[in-house]
Nucleic acid binder design. Structure first.
Length: 857
RNA sequence: GGGCACUUAGCUCAGUUGGUUAGAGCGCCUCGUUUACACCGAGGAGGUCGUAGGUUCGAAUCCUACAGUGCCCACCA
């Protein structure tokens, strides 16, 4: 027997168990003859602990998968986790440091990796439990991890293939070095912080140069200015001059380059190619020398002379002091505001360095695509521009293109221990490590492997196909690749989505997915971003325990639109808990009532009309990726059409409603992708006939548009309006509930008046009228302008005149029948006035309309 | 500096191709316990749809400008 209120905790585990035991999460086990595949790979959460509410947005994928499964598709939703090299290693390192005061160098590579593995195992199991708890229909038999042997093999294969094609190369480039974490950091793993810092102006020969970082200036022997700068026209490119500098005289060379902004400072600068990307580019353009000034720990090198070995922060004021003593300090601007780059993860100040690193060449034409040999970048742009990949919402197309167009070669080596170790080997005789041998196994005893690991996005870039068996030509790849949708947050469009497109078009020769659906960020009560690193994530389990998984799921789906942020808070979840309970009770009512037989009533035909309109609208919403709208529509139908009217009507014994079960069954199916638990429970309780006894694999309803009857819908709108009006009338004039109220029937079929009579407890007096007396009495009279544009103005006027007479008559008649003092005195005058006003208003409208119609013709 | 989005009820937000009276939930007020549901029902108050122009018979919706908010990208020595 069904309880009065739905208790999620009582059912969810059982239902989960049922689903999993069925094996239907695995496509091969699905019933029926399914040929059309539908696949999604789960964006792998980082194996760094637990999931937060941001991850709960995965629910959209479950909605898509469950929907497709009910449509009879061969559905695969593949789960897995990401080793997230830098995030995981730094998390374990900091836990280790906090607990034992040990660093990775104290325990060594092997022990650290052992600890990380243990931590990751625990994380994975926590994460998987959370995913199960959310009711996600993931195929656990295909679970993957980016460091699984198969995936390691795939990553190595890809690296080697790219190296052979010349797409992966080793070179000296400026990289973002994090002196704290001792690794390079990707461009998009940095963030900029505003900082106020003293800006120093120094005399450099005849010039004045400005800098916030005097400690980098030791080796500056190039002085650069814009070629068109009139002030320095006397100096020619390549001229040399002697200048007095920090540690004595130096020979400076004049360089003219357009990168210099003449309007900034003096329009002259000296450059430090080793530690500034822009300077590096200038140096490359002119073939200038580059010299390292700062070491990897942030200490000054011998070039600094007396300052060698000093940390830069410590050295800076001393250098300024020295320059001042030499009379080279011109002035200091203390209010200078500039932004400094810090590492996303560790928060260390980024120090650009020239280092030997591995790169992916994005501008090298080696990718065979659509019969042409193109660059990685060109292909990645092409697939989006040509619509092979659709980005939802499409405004992100521009963002994507802009980013892709400006992409530089991608640095993929990281000085970490955890991750995919680079399959490159150096001979002991090659001290400079300039001739790496790229292959999986060691070429021999004289070789040592590269110590670095790959950027974690290198392996996650391969996620759609490495998980399906690549480089083997597996059956899964054949069936499920390209995947149908990639659903993820817009915040990792660049990090991940773009890289998947680069890697997959090259590696597979096909797109990774047909559609990218980007959701917004889930923000907390205060609009704060819930992020992996900030640790302000809310535990989804807490909410599911309190309000039920369905309520959490629905509150994440309803009211969300693609690409827009979602704010989630407890009241919202509570509201959907109420909805779930409403559905439960509607079902309870239906189940408790014997199904009646006979001819469908007008109410039956109405609810079926509404139901099929609902299916149509939900289908449209799904097709347009408007999941929020689908939910909204379902919410409204269940509560305000099915429960408030149809069920209420069915309580009147005189209005048989025999479609209760049918409607309920359809509604359960439509709601199942969003709120799978309660719908599954109710379907069982209601004894619905389902394949394998499970709603999960039942058929998605089909919208029969011939069932939709707009005239009937309109009629019922009117009926509902009249009932409401009459109820108001009753209240207004304090007519006792027991007392019958007589109103005029208006061009209305017997069936309708009967319904109104019951719902509003009125007695109808048949009489001809333009509209209903109930409308008139409650002051709700409205004139509808026909939209077909065919209006007989004279006839309409005539009609209005007649109506005025009728109105007077009606009012007299109603008043008599009501026999109510107050009504007699007040209402009568009011209504007559009101009707006159409307009459006048209508006249004006008609004149205007006439004019415009004439103007048109 | 470049780009994108947002601005609708007290709060959080829907409103896709312009079209009857701009919606929902929460909150607030009134009434109500008729056995599906108080995790409820009936009703109500509350909106110059950021501002100013324009297009149109008709604009929250399209166009222009402006203001405020948020985000992304780039970054100057």
């Amino acid at each position: 027997m069904m309880d009065k209120a739905y208790n999620p905790a009582q059912h969810e585990d059982e239902i989960s168990g049922l689903w999993e035991a069925s094996g239907f999460y695995t496509p091969e086990n699905l019933p029926g003859d399914r040929t059309e595949p539908f696949s999604i790979v789960l964006p792998p959460p980082n194996a760094t602990g637990t999931l937060h509410l941001g991850h709960a947005m995965y629910v959209l994928q479950d909605v898509m998968i469950r929907h497709a499964r009910m449509q009879g598709k061969k559905t695969l939703w593949l789960p897995g986790t990401d080793h997230a090299a830098i995030a995981t290693q730094s998390k374990v390192e900091s836990m280790m440091y906090a607990a034992e005061g040990k660093t990775r160098h104290d325990v060594g590579r092997e022990e650290l990796l052992r600890r990380i593995d243990a931590f990751v195992e625990e994380s994975k199991s926590t994460i998987n439990n959370q995913l199960r708890k959310m009711g996600f229909s993931l195929d656990w038999t295909r679970e993957r991890f980016t460091l699984d042997p198969g995936l390691v093999h795939a990553v190595q294969t890809m690296f080697i293939q790219m190296a052979n094609d010349g797409l992966v190369y080793r070179g000296d480039r400026v990289v973002n070095w994090d002196p704290k974490l001792h690794t390079t950091v990707a461009d998009d793993e940095m963030e900029y912080k505003e900082e106020k810092a003293p800006f120093y102006y120094f005399q450099y020969g005849p010039f004045v140069i400005g800098t916030v970082r005097p400690e980098t200036k030791f080796g500056d022997k190039y002085v650069v200015m814009h070629p068109d700068d009139e002030r320095y026209a006397a100096y020619r490119h390549g001229d040399t001059l002697e200048v007095e500098w920090i540690n004595g005289p130096i020979t400076a060379t004049i360089i003219k380059d357009e990168a210099v902004d003449p309007a900034f400072g003096s329009g002259v600068m000296t450059i430090t190619p080793w530690h500034t990307p822009t300077d590096f580019e200038i140096a490359q353009r002119h073939g200038l020398d580059k010299e390292q000034i700062i070491d990897l720990d942030g200490n000054l090198l011998p070039v600094a002379g007396e300052f060698a070995g000093t940390h830069i922060e410590e050295a800076r004021p001393k250098i300024v002091e020295k320059l001042k003593a030499k009379g080279l300090l011109v002035k200091i601007d203390e209010e200078y505001l500039h932004s400094i780059a810090v590492s996303y993860r560790g928060g260390g100040k980024i120090e650009p360095q020239i280092m030997k690193q591995w790169f992916v060449a994005v501008d090298k034409p080696v990718v065979a695509w659509k019969g042409k040999t193109q660059t990685l970048k060109e292909v990645a742009l092409d697939v989006v521009r040509e619509g092979d990949i659709q980005i939802v919402p499409d405004r992100f197309n521009k963002t994507y293109e802009h980013w892709m167009e400006n992409l530089h070669d991608w640095c993929i080596s990281r000085q970490l221990w955890y991750g995919h170790r680079i399959p490159a080997w150096y001979h002991s005789g090659d001290a400079a490590r300039e001739k790496p041998v790229v292959q999986i196994d060691s070429p021999g005893a004289d070789y040592t492997q590269d110590e670095d690991v790959l950027d974690t996005w290198f392996s996650s870039g391969m996620w759609t196909f490495s998980t399906l068996g690549w480089p083997q030509k597996s059956k899964d790849l054949n069936t499920f690749h390209p995947t149908d949708v990639l659903e993820t947050g817009y915040d990792i469009l660049f990090f991940w989505v773009a890289r998947m497109i680069l890697m997959t078009t090259y590696g597979m020769g096909e797109i990774p997915f047909r559609k990218v659906y980007l959701h917004g960020l889930v923000r907390d009560k205060f609009g704060q971003k819930m992020s992996k690193s900030k640790g302000n994530g809310i535990d989804p389990l807490e909410m599911t325990a309190k309000y039920g998984t369905d309520a959490v799921r629905m509150s994440l789906v309803t009211g969300t639109t693609p690409g827009n942020d979602v704010r989630l808070y407890e009241e919202k979840i509570a509201n959907f808990r109420n909805f779930v309970n409403k559905l439960w009770n509607v079902s309870r009512f239906v189940v408790m009532n014997e199904a009646s037989a006979g001819e469908p009533s007008r109410a039956d035909r109405w609810i079926l009309s509404r139901l099929h309109a609902l299916i149509r609208d939900v289908d449209r919403a799904y097709a347009d990726d408007q999941y929020g709208q689908a939910c909204d529509r379902l919410y409204g139908f269940v509560w305000h059409e099915f429960a408030d009217w149809y069920i209420e009507m069915s309580k009147l014994k005189t209005v048989p409603s025999i479609k209760q079960r049918e409607v309920l069954g359809t509604v359960l199916k439509l709601l199942h992708p969003v709120i799978p638990f309660v719908t599954e429970v109710v379907a069982k309780e209601a004894g619905m006939v389902m394949p394998h006894g499970m709603l999960m694999v039942d058929e998605w309803p089909h919208a029969d548009e011939s069932m939709i009857d707009p005239a009937l819908d309109k009629r019922f709108d009117a009926i509902q309006q009249i009932v409401t009006d009459v109820r108001n009338l009753r209240r207004e004039y304090r007519i006792a509930p027991g007392r019958k109220l007589e109103v005029l029937a208006v061009d209305m079929p017997e069936e309708d008046t009967a319904l109104i009579a019951h719902l509003a407890r009125v007695h109808f007096v048949p009489e001809k009228s333009y509209t209903t007396a109930a409308h008139l009495v409650s002051g709700e009279q409205k004139f509808i302008i026909p939209l077909d544009g065919v209006i007989d103005v004279e006839k309409e006027k005539q009609r209005l005149a007649t109506q005025m007479v009728e109105v007077e008559k009606h009012i007299a008649s109603i008043a008599d029948k009501l026999n109510n003092e107050k009504f007699m005195q007040n209402a009568r005058a009011d209504i007559v006035d009101q009707t006159r006003d409307l009459h006048a208003q209508r006249e004006t409208e008609l004149q205007q309309l006439k004019k415009s119609l004439e103007a048109l013709s």
